[in-house]
Simulated assay, not measured.
Amino acid sequence: YRQFINGNNMDILIPLLVKTDFFARYCEINKSEDDGEQELTNIVQKLYQAIFNPTQDSLPALIINDHIAIEYPSRYRKDLIDSSSLLSGNSKY
């Protein structure tokens, strides 16, 4: 968890998002094409780095494709950390 939120470990995120049909449709990528999963993996890596890598805080936008851009992706960092901490065994719900 610590490595994940500090921008040092995206290993759990890649298979989770790459296998999700919703994410593939959002990115407008056909997973059944030869390079579809690799393209999705590259997007997840860029997205993770843009949100969790402190050197990327000033990134004005992350361009995913011709139709999709995420403006100031680092602004989502706190919300994602708060959400992922709810998955902890220490959470009370």
Rank of each mutant, 00 (worst) to 15 (best):
Y1H: 11
D35A: 04
N42C: 08
H67R: 07
N6E: 12
L13N: 07
K46T: 05
N30D: 15
T41H: 04
I12D: 13
Y93T: 14
C27W: 06
F22G: 15
A61T: 10
Q45S: 15
L87N: 10
L62S: 13
S58L: 08
R2L: 10
E39F: 02
L47I: 01
R75H: 09
L47V: 02
P73W: 06
K31W: 00
L86F: 10
K78Q: 15
L40I: 10
N9R: 06
D82Q: 08
P60C: 06
H67I: 07
R2H: 14
K46F: 03
I68D: 09
I64C: 07
L62K: 05
S83W: 06
K78L: 10
K78T: 15
F23V: 15
I70R: 00
S88W: 01
A61C: 08
R77P: 04
K31H: 02
R2E: 15
V18E: 03
S84F: 12
L86I: 07
S32K: 12
L40W: 01
S83I: 08
Y26D: 01
F4T: 09
I70L: 14
E71P: 10
V18N: 03
E28C: 11
L80F: 12
D35Q: 07
E28S: 13
D57L: 03
D35C: 05
S74H: 14
A69C: 10
R77E: 05
G89E: 12
R2F: 06
L59G: 06
P54H: 05
N65E: 00
S83H: 05
D11E: 12
M10W: 04
S91C: 08
D79Y: 02
K46M: 12
N6L: 07
I5C: 09
I63H: 06
P15G: 10
K46I: 00
Y76M: 11
V44W: 03
L87T: 08
G7S: 11
N53C: 09
H67G: 04
T55R: 12
S85K: 09
I63L: 06
A61R: 13
D11L: 08
I51Q: 05
K19R: 11
G89S: 12
I12K: 09
N9I: 02
I64L: 08
S84V: 14
V18P: 02
T55H: 01
I68A: 07
R25E: 14
K19W: 00
S85Y: 02
A69E: 15
N30F: 01
D57P: 00
Y72F: 07
I70N: 02
N6G: 14
G36Q: 06
Q49D: 14
K46Q: 13
